[in-house]
């Protein structure tokens, strides 16, 4: 992909996120201006409680912004219905499935819901797309297994396949690597990288795996108490953005390796 024919998928304009109640506004972060291009893998990093989840909720219309706008495909999200949004944006959340008795195929097929008829029957095309999503996430061999039989890593792959089957320009994942071992953390993020390139979808994920994000992402959004910035990982390293992430008493960012080290 050359830079000049890339399209902007998601854009925020002077976005402030936070919580509004009747007589009180608490702003978590303000003046957020980010743009995500087509086919990009973008990581969102920040300390616990900094507002990563609130930002993702605001970007996905789960939570209203305090100020400013979010545009997906140049249309403000508040002007899009749930169904319209479902065709441009899919999610992988941290919450558990209600019914683990679904087979992997059934789970992934539920991603086709925005396109199916009133009773939810799959057309031949739907089945093709579902199988393609299973193939892209390497889980064809377990497609008849029930979700309760899966390991955490397999289940996460199935959830990603479900989001792929939804066939959206943008996939947003909330901490897709929690509960996974080191190998599977790398595996899932590498898979996301591959999917972004192969399918030309924009993939945004929040994560605490800063070193992996630096190695894999096209751009990284760094959330610190005063500032939210987005740039390519190497630029962020030179500008010292990662050093501002955490209090300086315990760990320090090592620019050479791109990871945090414990202070001795």
């Amino acid at each position: 992909m050359k830079k000049h024919d890339q399209n902007i998928i998601l854009k925020t304009e002077n976005l402030s996120i936070g919580y509004k109640s009747k007589n009180d506004v608490s702003i978590i972060a303000s003046n957020i201006n980010i743009t995500l291009q087509q086919g990009e893998l973008v990581g969102l990093v920040g300390a616990n409680g900094i507002g990563k989840s609130t930002l993702l909720k605001t970007l996905t219309k789960v939570h209203p912004p305090v100020k400013g706008n979010v545009f997906i495909n140049e249309i403000p999200i508040e002007k899009q219905t749930n169904l319209e949004l479902a065709k441009t944006l899919s999610l992988v959340l941290t919450e558990k499935l209600i019914s683990k008795n679904l087979s992997v195929f059934e789970l992934v097929a539920l991603g086709r819901q925005p396109y199916t008829n009133w009773i939810g029957n799959l057309t031949a095309e739907d089945v093709l797309i579902v199988n393609q999503a299973l193939e892209q996430t390497h889980i064809e061999d377990i497609k008849h297994k029930k979700c309760f039989e899966l390991s955490d890593g397999q289940l996460q792959k199935a959830m990603i396949a479900r989001a792929l089957a939804q066939d959206t320009d943008l996939i947003i994942l909330d901490e897709p690597t929690t509960h996974l071992d080191m190998y599977h953390k790398a595996y899932i993020l590498k898979l996301l990288k591959k999917l972004a390139k192969e399918t030309n979808k924009t993939i945004l994920f929040s994560s605490h795996e800063i070193d992996l994000a630096i190695q894999l992402c096209d751009s990284v959004i760094v959330m610190t108490p005063n500032h939210v910035e987005i740039d390519q990982p190497c630029n962020l390293i030179t500008s010292g953005a990662f050093e501002k992430l955490f209090p300086k008493d315990l760990i320090a960012f090592d620019e050479k390796t791109g990871s945090f080290k414990i202070k001795k």
Partner: peptide
């Protein structure tokens, strides 16, 4: 109830997922 079969299946994922799949 037959008319709500699709909604019921979507709800198996939980309400947040159901909403992200376009369910009202």
């Amino acid at each position: 109830s037959i008319r709500s079969i699709k909604a019921l299946n979507t709800l198996l994922l939980g309400e947040n997922y159901a909403k992200s799949l376009g369910l009202n």
